[in-house]
């Protein structure tokens, strides 16, 4: 036990200051101070998932500003979608979107989700989230770095962005 405490003490606080806000984003109505995010992988190569995992770590600490990942779309303010939307994931993605409460804010995360990316044109993909459900925001990148994800989501929770 003392080894754990000592290590925690020596490690200190890892969380970094919030990044500079990026270009203004479409606000998410009714949301203030907390943001429930449901992630759906619609057939990505899994690099975007790696960055999402990195994003939840102590350096970025999204929970400290009220951003948390939830298990059910019914609890979600935001649907965060990765991947070019394979044909086999199309219905599942629609169902998850359908299950959300309004206002159903959707973000396409990564180049593939934005427009199909490198997989665009294949017989097995839809060519991006906008082809399947309405999209409110995009975070491009292959994959997008955690600080870009934070810069976007931070604007959705921050109070200045409201009214």
């Amino acid at each position: 036990m003392h080894k754990i405490l000592l290590k925690i003490f020596r490690t200190g606080t890892l969380t970094e200051p919030l990044p500079e806000p990026g270009p203004p984003v479409k606000p998410c109505p009714l949301v203030r101070g907390s943001l429930a995010v449901r992630h759906v992988d619609a057939g990505s190569c899994n690099a975007c998932e790696l960055e999402l995992h990195a994003f939840t770590q102590a350096f970025y600490a999204p929970e400290s500003i009220g951003i948390r990942f939830v298990a059910s779309p019914r609890h979600a303010d935001v649907l965060l979608v990765t991947g070019p939307v394979t044909l086999a994931m199309k219905d599942a993605l629609r169902a998850a979107h359908e299950a959300m409460p309004d206002p159903r804010y959707v973000i396409a995360l990564g180049d593939c989700a934005c427009n199909g990316g490198i997989f665009r044109g294949s017989y097995a993909v839809s060519g991006g989230v906008p082809e399947v459900i309405p999209v409110d925001g995009q975070i491009p990148g292959c994959p997008p770095e955690p600080k870009r994800i934070l810069a976007y989501l931070e604007q959705l929770v921050s109070a200045e962005n409201k009214d």
Binding site: G43, G83, A88, M89, I118, F119, Y123, A124, C142
Partner: peptide, 24 residues
Amino acid sequence: FAHKGVRTLFRNRSVSDAARLAGR
């Protein structure tokens, strides 16, 4: 569910472009 048809995307790509695809 994650089937993206990667193998048909390799066809007729230049070798360097195909290497990018292999990395994904």
